[in-house]
Write a protein that binds this DNA or RNA. Structure first.
Lengths: 245, 245
DNA sequence: ACGGATTATTGATATAGATCAATAATCCAT
DNA sequence: ATGGATTATTGATCTATATCAATAATCCGT
């Protein structure tokens, strides 16, 4: 991990357009509170239970946020992508409630709670962006709750695959997320064997193409039918589905 | 449901202390955007898929937020209590992603997105409160993800019971939440029969006292052991637990 | 207080997905 | 390229929890 000077650009707290209404002094004040850091794949920004001294704004790359049971069972709570905030759950709490681990090369800005508080109080445009980011993260979390609480294994997997599309990349090309079978399982509350079986079945039926490291959607319509709820209208009921749970 | 004039008090957007730094004009401006409404138990504030015109700040009472599959399977995403915001997930989206239904008599203030945006931009104290509320809701959502994704039925039930304590009321008295067995099941991704069996078992072992409509914690320490993760240190690993998933 | 309706309990059985196990594919360092 | 390590696939079996079913308890309106 290397610390470097902050080229203010493209993160929630430091996007160019936010500077429009600010004086030079304000911009400098903002910058000096941001510490830009680089992480390699598999490196942790922080671990579950660590004292929560900073929070992070993710500028480049992808992270997985995980929580573990003492016996080793692990749950991925969320995949974080550029633009999102990390650890704001600790705005009042003293410890990080999850581990944040880089999936790719990552650039993140870190900032203390007090500094963020000051920035928010002095910059309404930033606080609005923080609120938008947080509400999107809440929406993401609630989608995962739906998947975990009431879906079968095939429904979970199709929901997962469809949820990758908004992460960017050509919708008909390979999806831009490299998770192992084990990690997909840890996200969906399944085992890696079950994920493997379901994906093999989907591949046999030509719904997806998949190999280690890539997934491609071949038949989005049928995946949406299996999923039962349209991923993007998040919960807006559309059609009947045969499933018993 | 009855609409009435807004006696500004005790909700996220209108708590007294927020007025400290505001002029008379600002207070009036804030008030005129808030529409205070009353709801009875079982009444819906809005339904999944409805156009999201307003968001809500809950002043009194409890709500359940639910999402359904077309075949009727239902998931409780979150129990909302006084002070929380509802529907801010739709800050950008056009439709409510869940149904909000009163569990008790409820008082809520509703406000349009645009009005909220204006209030946030003109009042940093309020935006800070909104951010704190949202980050707490995100924390709640992530706890439920943990419960759903990696816990067994007894672990889920003990986590649920322990999570009721912060909702207030005497910790050694009856817990202040009346959910049916079916609703507890819809929250934990179980069936009502399984919830009933687990709770009967806990009662036999003197861990809880329960009947229709009330739950009382009798042996918090053992419940925490079964739960595996301390509810309040949310994920801070503490002791080994025997569980296979 | 009564009776129908709702909700909870308890028991018997079925099953989706976990676990255990072996093999196959792919990665990566030398 | 080669070989050991990691990750994915596939098969056989097991089990936690769902499903099906029958009471039992409690609620609520008259």
């Amino acid at each position: 991990m290397a610390t470097c000077s902050c080229e203010v650009k493209a993160c929630v707290l430091c996007e160019d357009r936010l500077y429009a209404g600010l004086s030079k002094e304000q911009i400098c004040q903002l910058r000096e509170h941001l510490i830009r850091e680089l992480y390699e794949p598999r490196e942790a920004l922080f671990r579950e239970g660590d004292p929560a001294t900073y929070l992070f704004a993710l500028r480049h790359g992808q992270l997985k946020l995980t929580s573990s049971m003492p016996d080793g069972r692990q749950q991925i709570l969320r995949i974080a992508v550029a633009g999102q905030l990390l650890g704001i759950e600790t705005f009042k709490g003293p410890r990080y409630p999850f581990t944040a681990e880089a999936l790719t090369d990552v650039v993140a800005c870190k900032i203390s709670h007090d500094d963020l508080r000051n920035i928010i109080e002095s910059n309404p445009a930033i606080s609005l962006r923080v609120i938008e980011t947080l509400s999107h993260e809440l929406d993401q979390a609630e989608s995962l709750i739906r998947d975990l609480g009431l879906k079968t294994a095939p429904e979970k997997v199709s929901s997962f695959v469809l949820s990758l599309v908004p992460l960017g990349g050509d919708p008909n090309g390979d999806l831009p997320l490299r998770l192992s079978r084990r990690e997909i399982a840890e996200m969906l509350g399944l085992t890696e064997e079950t994920v493997s079986r379901v994906m093999a079945d989907f591949a046999r039926k030509k719904l997806i193409g998949s190999g280690r490291g890539f997934i491609r959607i071949l038949d989005r319509k049928r995946l949406e039918e299996i999923n039962g709820i349209d991923v993007n209208t998040a919960g807006h009921p559309r059609r009947a589905v045969s499933a018993k749970r």
